[in-house]
Structure formats: structure tokens, C-alpha cells
Amino acid sequence: MYDSGKIIIGIIIFIALFTFPTWYLFTSGEAAPMPDLVYPENEDQKECVYSAEYMRASHMDLLNEWRDIVVREGKRTFTTTAGKKFEMSMTNTCLGCHSNKAQFCDQCHNYLEVNPYCWDCHVDPSQLENQ
């Protein structure tokens, strides 16, 4: 092998970069803490708008749909495919049941570095109480 010094340095840099996720996980301490979700307690709040599976993956699509219906069509009541009715409001409806945003929405969002900019304008009631 010619220029073995440079080649070996190059290979080491390549391996270090490629295995970054592994040694980063091992050096950053404990295993990743999974989101720890607190669900609504009240009896009349036991069911989400749609099934939990659907909500987990697609809640942003539902919010987007609500936003469009409210802002563009001025309607405020949403009827699910199962016939249940909800007021289309992020603060009143979603956070009405999931009253602790920090223990619900933010749990997942921090785990995956999702930063919805919605709260620039929309109100998180638990933040108001703190102030």
C-alpha cells in the first residue's frame, strides 16, 4: 500500500463518521427515554377523535384539515366518519382532553425533535395558568 498513513487516516475518519449514531448512543448515557404519555382521566374523555393508531400517525393531517375548514370555510363543527361531533379547535378540543401538553404532545415531539410553530399563535392553556 502506498501513502499508508494518509489512507489509514482517511479510513478511520470514514468509519468514525459512518458509525456516529452508534458511538453517540453509547457515549450519551442512558438508553433513549421513550415518550411517557398521560392520557385523559375523565370518563367522557376516553375516546379520541379517531382511533389511537390513526391519531398517532396522522394527527397533523387532521389538524391541517380542521385548519382549512375553519379558516377557509368558516365551519366549526366536525363530524367524524363514526358520526361523532367535535368543535374544530386545537386549544379547546385537543387540549381540552389532552390538558397537559407537556405530558402528551411534547413528549413525542421532543423525542423526535418536532417543533410545530402553531403555538406561536395558538394558546396552550396550561402555559397561561403558569404565568
Partner: peptide, 27 residues
């Protein structure tokens, strides 16, 4: 790297904000 690492390195939110800066649609 938001899927591979915990805690998530600071370059991830930086790139996400830059890359999503048009704020079109949801996601």
C-alpha cells in the same frame, strides 16, 4: 439523525428549520 440519536444533536433542528422554512403544508 432524529431517528438514530438520543439526545438529538443540535444540527437537526437547525437543518429542519432551514429546510422547512417555506412552512408549506403540514407536515
Amino acid at each position: 439523525f432524529r431517528y438514530f440519536s438520543e439526545p438529538i444533536p443540535a444540527f437537526v433542528p437547525f437543518l429542519q428549520n432551514l429546510d422547512g422554512f417555506l412552512q408549506i403544508g403540514l407536515p
